[in-house]
């Protein structure tokens, strides 16, 4: 989609000397001297539970702010933005896939996929510019992820299988071409033989839309599918040696 090569662009994500504690009287849960994700790059982040995964994701999303250090997304320093600007920034530039319960049960499939456009005019415009309409883009993404049947797209999401739900969530994360997709253990609820298929599809679609992908999982069998593998336990200096 973009002719400029990854190396020439600013990193999508750049953490410098980040330290975060939930409360002043507690020790930091996260201390990351440096961590980057380049534009369009697909990174596997191995994060066993207790390694500070939730905290890291909250920092990247701009929901939490580090006490020291800087978190830059697309060259913008999140701690320097106000709370409202961070929320808007997240809506405009981030796609998120959770482990499960990704979808609003009261919206049909298509509306769930188009949700990011409700909160971000920029992504709405991108969808219309790329595919003519929001719905056209939602259908294209769902189709690419193997969900085509029109009848299914109008059904309540609660009638879908877990695997289908995760693919709908992936389509939503990609809606309106965000710059970075964060996937927080999206395959852990899937059967083993479905996991690989999901990762392949997700990687392929991130490539197609030019989004960088930060894939957090403790399932190391998926790691070889990514361009780079990082262990959160290794980059997080706040963890005592061998604690995880």
């Amino acid at each position: 989609m973009n002719a400029v090569s990854a190396a020439e662009r600013a990193p999508v994500l750049d953490l410098q000397q980040v330290s975060f504690r939930w409360r002043r009287d507690l020790p930091p849960v996260l201390t990351i001297p440096a961590f980057q994700v380049a534009a369009g790059e697909r990174v596997f982040l191995a994060g066993p539970s207790g390694a500070g995964k939730s905290t890291l994701l909250a920092l990247i999303a701009g929901i939490a702010i580090p006490q020291t250090g800087d978190v830059q997304v697309l060259g913008r320093s999140l701690p320097g933005l106000g709370a409202a600007a961070r929320d808007r920034f997240r809506a405009d530039h981030l796609g998120v896939i959770f482990q499960m319960f990704n979808l609003l049960p009261y919206l049909p499939v298509l509306d769930n996929v188009m949700l990011p456009c409700r909160f971000s005019p920029a992504r709405r415009q991108q969808a219309v510019a790329r595919d003519g309409s929001q719905e056209a883009q939602a259908r294209r993404l769902l189709g690419a992820l193997g969900l085509q049947a029109d009848a299914m797209l109008r059904r309540p999401v609660t009638e879908l299988s877990v695997g289908q739900q995760q693919r709908v969530a992936a389509a939503r994360a990609l809606m309106g071409a965000p710059d970075l997709v964060i996937a927080d253990e999206p395959t852990s609820a899937l059967d083993a033989d479905r996991r690989l298929e999901f990762v392949e599809l997700l990687a392929q679609e991130c490539d197609a839309s030019g989004a960088a992908l930060l894939f957090v999982s403790h399932d190391l069998s998926l790691a070889p599918r990514f361009q780079r593998q990082v262990s959160l336990a290794e980059i997080n200096a706040a963890l005592p040696e061998g604690s995880v």
């Binding site: 929901i63 929320d87 809506a91 405009d92 319960f101 979808l103 049960p105 949700l115 990011p116 909160f119």
Partner: peptide, 14 residues
Amino acid sequence: RREMALLRALGARP
């Protein structure tokens, strides 16, 4: 609660 967290992730303001 899930619904709210989801909306927050999508950029909904508090």
